[in-house]
C-alpha cells in the first residue's frame, strides 16, 4: 500500500458517498444516470468475487464490502426508492455498445482463461467506460448540478491517483499490471475534458456546470 493508492481509494469512497448523500438528501435522482450506477455495481460484483476466497488484508476486505454495499444502495435509491424522480428518457445511452466490446475483449485479453480472471478483466474494462452514460447525459441535458460535478471530479481523480500508484509500484517493487494500467489510462482520459470544464466552470463559477 502506498499514499497514492490510499488517496485514490479515499477519493473513490468520497465520490460514492457524495452521490449517495445527494440522492438521499434531495430525495431525487434527477440528472443522475442510473445506467452508470448499474454498471458500477456490476464492476464491483465481478471484481470482488474473490471476497471470500482470497484474503489480502482487513482494509482490502472492508473496502470491498463497503463499495459493494454503497453501490447497490445507490442503485436501489435510483430504481426503487426515488424511481419517480428518475428521468429515464435522458438516460438513453445504449449499454450494449459498452457491454459487447468489453465482454469480447475480456475473453481475448486476460491473464488466465479462468472464470474468475475473465470476470476480473471484464470488471477492469467495464469500469473504464462505465461513466459514459453519465457523461452522455450531461452533454445531452447540457448541464450538471455542482454536486454531480464534484462526484465526477473525485471519481476521475481516484483513477488518476491509481496511475501514480502504478508508477510508484513499478519503480519500488517492479509491479506492473498491464490490463489495469492500460484500462486505467483510458478511463482517466475520458475525464480530461470534464476536468477542464470542472476547473474553469464549477470552481470559478460556483454554480451549475453548463456546457458551451
Amino acid at each position: 500500500m502506498n499514499i497514492f493508492r490510499l488517496a485514490g481509494d479515499v477519493c473513490h469512497l468520497v465520490a460514492i458517498i457524495i452521490l449517495l448523500l445527494k440522492i438521499w438528501r434531495s430525495r431525487s435522482c434527477a440528472g443522475i444516470s442510473g445506467k452508470s450506477q448499474v454498471l458500477f455495481a456490476i464492476v464491483f460484483t465481478t471484481r470482488y468475487l474473490d471476497l471470500f476466497t482470497v484474503f489480502i488484508s482487513p482494509y482490502n476486505t472492508i473496502m470491498k464490502v463497503v463499495f459493494l454495499a454503497l453501490s447497490y444502495a445507490t442503485v436501489y435509491l435510483i430504481y426503487m426508492r426515488f424511481r419517480n424522480t428518475f428521468n429515464s428518457e435522458n438516460d438513453s445511452f445504449r449499454l450494449e455498445f459498452l457491454l459487447v466490446p468489453v465482454i469480447g475483449l475480456s475473453f481475448l485479453e486476460n491473464y488466465a482463461f479462468t472464470p474468475l480472471e475473465i470476470l476480473w478483466t471484464f470488471s477492469i474494462f467495464l469500469e473504464s467506460v462505465a461513466i459514459m452514460p453519465q457523461l452522455f447525459m450531461i452533454t445531452k441535458t447540457g448541464e450538471a448540478e455542482s454536486i454531480t460535478t464534484h462526484y465526477l471530479f473525485f471519481l476521475g481523480l481516484y483513477r488518476a491517483l491509481y496511475i501514480a500508484n502504478w508508477v510508484w509500484r513499478y519503480h519500488t517493487e517492479g509491479f506492473f499490471d498491464q490490463i489495469a494500467v492500460v484500462s486505467g489510462v483510458v478511463q482517466t482520459i475520458f475525464y480530461i475534458d470534464f476536468f477542464y470544464l470542472y476547473v474553469t466552470k464549477v470552481l470559478r463559477g460556483r454554480g451549475k456546470m453548463t456546457l458551451p
Binding site: R47, V54, N60, K64, Y111, A112, W120, Y162, N165, A180
Partner: peptide
Amino acid sequence: HALNMAHDEL
C-alpha cells in the same frame, strides 16, 4: 504473464 496473481488492488 503473471498467471493467477492475487489482485491486491481494489
